[in-house]
Nucleic acid binder design. Sequence first.
DNA 1: AATGAATGAGCGTTCATTCAT
DNA 2: TATGAATGAACGCTCATTCAT
Lengths: 191, 191, 191, 191
Amino acid sequence: MPKIVDSEQYRKELLHQCFDLLAEKGYANVTTRQLAQFLNISTGALYHYFPSKKALFEQLVEEMSQQDVQMLQAVAAGNKTLPQRVRLLGELLVEREDYFVKQAALFVDFYRHTEIAETLNNPVFERIDQQYQQVMMTVLGLSEPKVARFVWTLINGVLIEQVEGAAGLSFAAQIDLLTDMLIAYFEKHGS
Amino acid sequence: MPKIVDSEQYRKELLHQCFDLLAEKGYANVTTRQLAQFLNISTGALYHYFPSKKALFEQLVEEMSQQDVQMLQAVAAGNKTLPQRVRLLGELLVEREDYFVKQAALFVDFYRHTEIAETLNNPVFERIDQQYQQVMMTVLGLSEPKVARFVWTLINGVLIEQVEGAAGLSFAAQIDLLTDMLIAYFEKHGS
Amino acid sequence: MPKIVDSEQYRKELLHQCFDLLAEKGYANVTTRQLAQFLNISTGALYHYFPSKKALFEQLVEEMSQQDVQMLQAVAAGNKTLPQRVRLLGELLVEREDYFVKQAALFVDFYRHTEIAETLNNPVFERIDQQYQQVMMTVLGLSEPKVARFVWTLINGVLIEQVEGAAGLSFAAQIDLLTDMLIAYFEKHGS
Amino acid sequence: MPKIVDSEQYRKELLHQCFDLLAEKGYANVTTRQLAQFLNISTGALYHYFPSKKALFEQLVEEMSQQDVQMLQAVAAGNKTLPQRVRLLGELLVEREDYFVKQAALFVDFYRHTEIAETLNNPVFERIDQQYQQVMMTVLGLSEPKVARFVWTLINGVLIEQVEGAAGLSFAAQIDLLTDMLIAYFEKHGS
DNA sequence: AATGAATGAGCGTTCATTCAT
DNA sequence: TATGAATGAACGCTCATTCAT
């Protein structure tokens, strides 16, 4: 086994490798031993890179949310009308369905495994929430933060239903419906 | 404490008593001992009424979903236009915010604690999903099952955000926005 | 395995059974699994009776110190001169050498495994220290608390050397020497 | 940082640096990583100089006991009466209270972390014990080895009580009492 | 029907030690 | 010599479940 040269880099690689496992099985349903085995390292090594299971999870969520934001920003480029932007956003989500669904799974776990008292003071939470709100405003060119936030809430609702594997409709079909609804709303109420 | 006459009835009472505790703290964060203590029975007795913690939880989810459906049906009564129905539905949700948010919390837990392979074959899941789809069709007087189903998905998205305690907007404000959006959509695309 | 009827009684029995093992091997060198195995119960049962390994240990120390005090009080009975009392105390210690040596071992562990900050506020510590000082005053009929305390310190020094198995002299010989020293001291300085 | 010329010398320097840390926190409460960090070397380097944590500890105890002996020898110089020697010894102990208390802490840890079976055969133990007995004979000018040995036992008893932080009396006060007691004893029984 | 003591596999985590570099 | 990443057995403890009463 080669000596790790860039330990910071390796830590991020480990995080990325964890993503699928944690998103699919859920934080509470994956043990540190499973995690280590999955990563092909010992439990000791896992704790060499992360101070605790919880910290690993938080780092993962943060890392992924940044990746999210970068992906979504792409929609903002160019001169587009609001309906165009909404459709583009929908297309992006459908294109990367697998990623976004897993990401949503991670978030649900993250929130549920944090004590409510902790939630309010947690800087990670706040930063992430702010980021998503901001990116939705930029992407859709909205002036109302609360509408931007609401759009993200709805998207998450659809994503989470996919997580649960309970969807009667395909993700693409749901995103289509959502797109239509948003466009109808913006046509009627302005942006 | 009255002598137990109808064991079936008593089981349901126990379930109703569990609801708040499990919804607030989450399935994984409540031990069977806590559950038993909360119900003022012994752990042995708990296992007399329910074969396992998981089974108890599934029965609770099922029981509550039926209660949900009954509540929602109320909106369907009388001769109303679609926008009226949508608004009524929104009002009902806001009125009983506490209950519905807890219910959503329960669902999220339920899905996350079930293996994906299990999800697809689980009759409980299917039945519940069908029920919600059905009730939304009735309540809104829709002819399209998939739209009905989707409306419920969106409502759940809003509820789950409240569960997570992460909401930037109040539940009422979000439901208002959702109501407006649905009305705009139906006006444009028909029901 | 019969059901335990008097759980409080059983807890004390478990404590007494632990005594030898913990005194001989030391708190840190006995694992909870070893403890459970030694007691012929499961680790789960151990935690049914004691909230933690540390709590078990503290209860043991307290229980034993009470037993100590009762033993030592016996010397106080009757009308005796100070030298007589000193000799009687020495005889008692030699008679029950095994017990007192183990007890001393326990105490050393107890103090070393408690954070210094904790030591000062710990009610268990204070009570025990007071008890020994008090009992030495009574037993020797001393009016000076600090001398009483000092005598106990010296006795403990001798006991601890036995714990360590490092003694060049037998316990009886050491206690004899100590007795002579104390008598010489009291003859010269009064009691 | 000077280039290491004499590896043996460096090893002893490392030991001396360890002393405070190990005496204050206790063998079991200091990890090899902490030790290495404290010494400004890597864990690998630590294992280059010492075959194991335990061996390091044993070497430390041995090294320190030699230092002890040298300090104590100082009292032997000159033509003094026994009471004078006893008082001088007491003064030395009080002067260097901090050092001797730490030393005692080390010894207690050392003995407790060694299996009893091991204790009896351990050459380190025997050598150290012999040394102290010898030095006490020289220092006090005693002809009886067993009394010399016993005096050291009593001194240790007082030191250990200080280690435990449980002392009702100051170290100086206890040493004063001990001095008086020894003098009274020697006056009565001869040396 | 009901109790609660008992079980033991499994959890997150630690740390003395090793070894490729 | 020296590094520090890697190991993995073992720790204290938890908790769904069982079972003698």
